[in-house]
Design a protein around this nucleic acid. Structure first.
Lengths: 223, 223
DNA sequence: CGAGCCCTTGAACGCCGTCAAACTCAGTGG
DNA sequence: CCACTGAGTTTGACGGCGTTCAAGGGCTCG
């Protein structure tokens, strides 16, 4: 379990210059094209990395939960290729990217831990690509909530069958390559199939087995 | 330009145990679920990492060209989440993953180089997700060939307006989240618009400017 | 010369997007 | 206390983009 990064390498990370930093709901954490010299470890709240196209449409890349690291892709890219904003109020621990890279090459456990986080980010990205490329809207929706349930359960933020999700349907739709209107229909269908409900920020998974089968979900990539 | 990894850190890499290894066309380089203790640097040929779903449909994650590293995502995942096969005959330099990680923490330049490669892989994956999630089939197709042109030009394997591409339309379609039938229609449309031709493994970009505009292509993520 | 793979094209279907309207609810200010 | 606003949700009607199914083409290879 690599999530408790702060605990895992507490002694080490203390040697880095860390300061806590809060982002209010709706504010940017970093923007596309800007230099990014900081990395943020989320302690509370949800954030969201995304990309906006010339046409104005948005693709959400990833949702960042407590324990996740924001800006890992910046370890070696001076300019970020996408943006990130605070979906809720977000509290973070801010670390200087250069400091981190430095500590990185000096310490095996830290390097392993960071590489592990990057590796899981990558696996989730691949899974999202598979979803958007080859799953139907209904399957995608099911898969999304199963993945979320798993990630939250690993953090002790709810069980695998009930958890809070402070995301608008617009945001989720932009993550799944759907329109909000169609996502709403898929949510209704899942509810009518007695598989899952999502109401007022609260998710209930009613039949995990059938849902897992529908989504072709396989959880090993999350740990 | 980080592509010439072998040249860049030649002295260093020589200290690793490297042996050349060839994969014939159509053979697997690694398979989903198998332990992967090796990393391969492509020297000639094209490979393709992909994932197969229970339903049998396939999503291509990435095409690997000469200079690319296969198995980077395995740096910290014991079991691979997807598979990779040789699209053409592929010659590689094989490196022990553990050796690489070891050298990694001991040497800044190597670490920077590898992180850079991983970072570019990640940026391409994001761009593919944006394509599949938010671009029309025609835009996706245009974007795919522009990205390929850029990558190949960086390697000196053709100009930005003409290059070889030994991929079947099935393979490309599986990379773009389309059917081969529809990709074929999009190719026809691009040809009829005098933007691009793809015939017998050879690509001609006829109007780079209009194609770039159509695809909303922006090349900085490739370096 | 047949088998297999890939490319090409047509016809019809259906999933999902677009457009539009109504509803809830929190916040704001009169 | 209530009108007003704006963001988010829900639902219906309709159209189109992309899939599915089907057939025929060229090519290489045995």
């Amino acid at each position: 379990m690599h999530l408790a990064l702060l605990a895992l390498d507490e002694g080490l990370l203390k040697s880095l210059e860390i300061r806590s930093r809060v982002f209010e709901k709706g504010t940017d954490i970093y923007e596309e094209g800007r230099a990014c010299r900081k990395v943020y470890i989320v302690t509370t709240g949800w954030a969201c990395s995304y990309k906006i196209m010339r046409s104005g449409s948005r693709q959400v890349i990833d949702f960042k939960l407590p324990g996740d690291i924001i800006g890992l892709q910046a370890l070696n890219v001076i300019r970020s290729g996408h943006s990130c904003f605070a979906t809720t109020r977000v509290e973070t621990a801010e670390i200087n990217t250069l400091d981190l890279i430095h500590a990185f090459t000096a310490n095996d456990r830290l390097a392993t831990s960071i590489l592990g986080a990057a590796s899981r980010d990558d696996a989730m990205l691949v899974e999202r690509l598979v979803s958007v490329g080859r799953r139907s809207a209904l399957e995608r929706t099911a898969h999304f909530f199963l993945e979320l349930a798993e990630r939250l359960a690993l953090r002790g933020m709810g069980s695998k069958t009930a958890f809070d999700c402070p995301l608008s349907q617009f945001l989720i739709a932009d993550s799944l390559g759907l329109t909000a209107v169609h996502l709403n229909r898929m949510l209704r269908t899942l509810r009518e199939m007695n598989l899952l409900t999502f109401h007022e920020g609260h998710v209930h998974i009613l039949d995990q087995e059938r849902l897992t089968q529908l989504a072709d979900f396989e959880n090993s990539y999350l740990e």
